[in-house]
Design a protein around this nucleic acid. Structure first.
Lengths: 135, 135
DNA sequence: TCAAGCATAAGACATTCTCCTATAGTAGAT
DNA sequence: ATCTACTATAGGAGAATGTCTTATGCTTGA
């Protein structure tokens, strides 16, 4: 039997939206990787379930190379070394681009939804008809 | 200078939604790979730009292995061999699951949008203030 | 007969994801 | 005192995905 929990139809496909999530977090305050992981976990799309830490650290480094954020080691702190990330002007610009893109995504998903609804309703009707005939 | 056209903030991140798109297409009529590629291209998220054919063919095979669709070679046709795909009961069930998932995605993106809007407005205000002070 | 489009698909490389492991410091419990 | 759990970062490896090139062979029209 098909396990729909392991099917993309049950979600867990919004991974690529981690980047705007990080930018949104950093637009509000400078933070280090570990805390960013926790904040991402709190975001609506992760619902408390932490994303892979390694992935986030690597994403942050990639984002720094692309000039969206800059990092600095914390000097004041005792405890394990933290690497704080600060959003750049380009990062802010990138985030404002995301508004258009997210709006487009929402529209596209809305259109898909309308179509899927439509198609599923048709399927249901024809299934019901079969059942009626059989009864 | 950062090229935002190559940034995910400019879109092209909805690749994983190819599967529900295929299911939606096949829920309406049996079709073969090449035509499916064209239909996907027509879908709102691809805006006329064709997805990679190899990828679609492989996705279809994977979907068949998962029991969402079944294939059959066309017998009647002259011309190059076509492999028609037909949606299964499980495929239809999967598609109906997608309704919930897409609805959730739309909600999540809506929440993200609200937050990004909010944050960008703050950034804009503080930038404006700096400009005012400078003038 | 030549080019363009139809139709499928393997190969190969790049990118991305995820799991496992390693490090090292801190805080609280037993 | 020492042990466990948590904080904090990160490399390595293999799996999964994505994408580009190439190959095959048929059809249609110039």
């Amino acid at each position: 039997m098909l396990d729909f929990n392991k099917c993309p139809c049950s979600g867990n496909n919004l991974d690529k939206l981690v980047q705007p999530t990080i930018l949104t977090i950093l637009a509000q305050e400078d933070l280090y990787g570990y805390k960013i992981v926790q904040r991402i976990a709190e975001s609506p799309m992760f619902k408390g379930h932490k994303p892979d830490g390694t992935g986030v650290y690597r994403t942050l480094k990639a984002m720094e190379q692309r000039g969206l954020v800059i990092s600095s080691r914390s000097l004041t702190d005792t405890g394990p070394a933290k690497i704080f990330y600060h959003i750049t002007k380009e990062g802010e610009e990138c985030l404002s681009h995301w508004i258009n893109t997210l709006e487009e995504y929402r529209q596209i998903i809305g259109m898909m939804l309308a179509e899927v609804h439509n198609v599923c309703a048709k399927i249901k009707r024809s299934t019901d008809n079969v059942n009626l005939t059989q009864d």
